[in-house]
Amino acid sequence: MASSLATPEASTAAPAREGYWQHLRYIMAENPLTGISFAMFIGLIIMALFGPYLVPFDPVATGAGPALMPPSPAHWFGTDHLGRDVFSRVVVATRLDLMISVSAVALSFVFGSVIGSLSGYFGGWTDRIAGRLMDTIMAFPLFVLAMGIVAAAGNSVENIVYATAIINLPFYARMARAEVSIRRNAGFVQAARLSGNSELRVLFGHIFPNTLPPIMVQISLNMGWAILNAAGLSFIGLGVQPPTPEWGIMVAEGANFIISGEWWLVVFPGMALMLAVFTFNLIGDGLRDLVDPQRRT
């Protein structure tokens, strides 16, 4: 009997869900920059995964050619002061730089959004303590704070990761807090309580996934920033040590040669750094469109 009241409005509804690939294609077509950034992102991933097997020379072997040779068919990006192939070094460095930034961003995302979600949801003392903690971190010039952490904790790649993660923590915490607190009294949250979800499950099962789209954008912007930060630390001699190929070190080493006209030592690692940052900044919007089901009409 009740079913005989079946929806007269049924016919007006949207068609069934589109496939994921179709959706991806639509997003690419809607904004060509997203397509370009995805392509560049895939390029970066390939370089990071297969770089060492693809390059023509051993990135740390000196004497791959004569020292300080300008770009040529044999050495596309030229050679540095020790005769190492700059192209090989730039490509191989991708893995280390991405690894540092991905793990740093992952750490700050996980801890930052947990702290932020808890303080946004429970408020009160949780919020006050977490908030002041984040304010304390933000009170320092962030790069100087990272330098201090690495200098104090010891000069290693792990510590660069931790330092980068710590200085990024407040951004995630604040964002998660804001996104959670605007949703904590939404109808679907009340409904989740009525369905027998515990408070923590309401928070992490219902509210948190809905905060992901803006946080995704933050992650991608932050990635570029984290790469810069890692390169910056290496540039001033912290963290990664020579002769390991790393963009920041390469720029630092090459800086001495700009005056004498050997520009390729600085320009190519610098370009790689710039392109990587550029890619992550662009990909943000595309990512949000992908993770937000409401955009998938």
């Binding site: 009740a2 929806t7 409005e9 509804a13 949207a14 089901p293 409401q294």
Partner: peptide
């Protein structure tokens, strides 16, 4: 069936449903 929601709509997300259909989902849940 009880609330008169066609079974083929069960896989849809809220923004793909009309107001009346969403109301039915809410009633079914309740």
């Amino acid at each position: 069936s009880l609330v008169g929601l066609p079974h083929n709509l069960l896989g849809r997300y809220p923004h793909q449903l009309s107001g009346g259909q969403k109301a039915r989902v809410g009633i079914a849940r309740a």
